[in-house]
Amino acid sequence: MAKPAILRAAKLSDQTNAELEAAFEVHDLPSDATRASAMLDEVGPQLRGIALRKTVVDAALLDRLPGLEIISSYSAGLENVDIDTARSRGIEIANTSHILAEEVANLALGQILGVTRDIHNADRYVRDGKWPDAPYPLQVSLQGMEVGIVGFGQIGQAVARRLEAVGASVSYSGPRRKPVDLPYHATPLELAQACRIVVLTCPLTPETRGIADARFFEAIGPGGWVVNISRGAILDEAALIDVLSRDAIAGAALDVFAEEPEVPEALKRDPRVLLTPHIGSGTTQTRQRMGDAMVDALVARLGTDTPPDR
């Protein structure tokens, strides 16, 4: 029996690539547009699945893949996929948000503690030899602090569990209420007005692009922080730089950026901003589990005589 044919449009680990090649007839999408078009002319109608990461899957590409049954993404975000067109054609869409949620939430808690306890600057205080001169200034406790979460999917709920464990008071906003016993705010702005820290965990959509704007930061106020572990374009970096310059917000922790890996110099220079290079899911174990889940979704939909040997 012939193996199902799939399109590999992602850079993946050696183990995940080996699993794909054992189970499927794999065709790699060339980076060169002319070569990619020629390849799709030749094999596009045979392709039944896509192993995806960041490649844009728009209506034009879907038109070249009339037999496509599933798009399986290695990542949680699906902003690079024309979801409406895919679903209208009966194409299944799978991602790995259920796999990476706990790891991303771990980083979020670390970032929240980092800015409220000023850990990165306290580290520098010791290294610069300032401790013998004076004790470090007192910081702020998470116990009893009002913390808001924008977006309350699997990642947002995992963040909430960790915050509750350390004694924070958690509320959330999103397009609809969830069956949880936590305060709900209809808009991110209302959430920001009620909280001292706001954590962005929502997906990037036309509705969420730029929602963390000047009014949002002003609502948090000079004693509060914003944490972004979602997508860079959800936060208006120019507006954040402006409120920081006016001391209208206490600081920020950012794992994602609008033009990453480029980061605005003003953010890099500001000691009130904790910066990490998009490492939310960045552990060996979680990244492999993400690859496994991507393969498993393809196998479940397309079938194969060679299931992954793990």
Rank of each mutant, 00 (worst) to 15 (best):
A238S: 10
I241F: 09
L235T: 08
T283G: 08
I279M: 03
S173W: 06
L240Y: 08
S171I: 00
A219R: 00
V273P: 08
D236Q: 07
L240H: 04
F217K: 06
P277V: 10
R231I: 05
A168T: 14
A165M: 03
R177P: 14
W225R: 02
A297R: 06
G282T: 00
R162K: 10
K268T: 14
L200G: 06
V166H: 09
P222N: 04
L189I: 02
F216R: 05
S281G: 13
A297Y: 03
G174H: 02
S230K: 04
T276W: 06
P175T: 08
W225V: 10
G282W: 00
L275Y: 07
L204C: 13
P264R: 11
T208C: 03
S173Q: 11
R246E: 10
A266E: 15
I220K: 01
I211K: 12
A212K: 09
F216P: 05
V273Y: 01
F216I: 04
I197H: 03
L235I: 00
L254P: 02
T201N: 13
P261K: 14
R287V: 00
H278M: 13
A250S: 04
D296K: 07
T284R: 13
L274K: 15
E218K: 12
V170W: 10
A253P: 12
A192E: 01
V243P: 09
S245R: 11
V226Y: 14
A165E: 10
N228F: 02
G282P: 01
T283C: 05
V198Q: 01
R161D: 12
C202E: 08
V199G: 12
D247I: 02
G167F: 13
G167R: 14
S169N: 14
R272G: 05
R231C: 10
R161F: 04
N228M: 03
V198G: 07
R287S: 00
E260R: 09
I249C: 04
